[in-house]
């Protein structure tokens, strides 16, 4: 891989133990070890994270915004999956 065309990696940071890793951004690197070090250098300069994940961008399979209508449509007409669909009298307490 030439210096001009390094592999693209996505960077995920866990800001605190117990929380999910969140997408922070991306960077170019030769390999995953280097990507991890770069991510530390550029994305956690102010203690933003206690753990870093790097993933090759090419390895991410993503849904397409343009397809989202048909992709997510099946859950739109199912209000009964939400608690608010059911009327529960106040007298019986929180449920």
């Amino acid at each position: 891989m030439s210096l001009e065309k390094l592999e693209l990696f996505e960077v995920f940071l866990r800001s605190k133990r117990g929380l999910d890793h969140k997408h922070a951004g991306s960077l170019h690197a030769e390999d995953k070890e280097q990507a991890l070090e770069y991510a530390r250098d550029v994305y956690t300069r102010r203690s933003e994270g206690v753990s870093i994940w790097v993933v090759k961008s090419n390895d991410i399979c993503a849904s397409q915004e343009d397809d989202s209508d048909s992709f997510f449509d099946p859950s739109d007409d199912k209000p009964y999956r939400h608690a608010t669909y059911y009327d529960i009298p106040k007298e019986v307490g929180a449920m």
């Binding site: 117990g18 999910d20 009964y80 999956r81 939400h82 608690a83 669909y85 059911y86 009327d87 529960i88 019986v92 449920m95």
Partner: peptide, 21 residues
């Protein structure tokens, strides 16, 4: 486990209510 429980509790809130109805 903790994160799984948080997600499950959120999704399950309707289960008990539909039963009571």
């Amino acid at each position: 486990y903790s994160r799984g429980m948080i997600r499950i509790c959120k999704e399950e809130s309707f289960h008990q209510r539909q039963g009571y109805v």
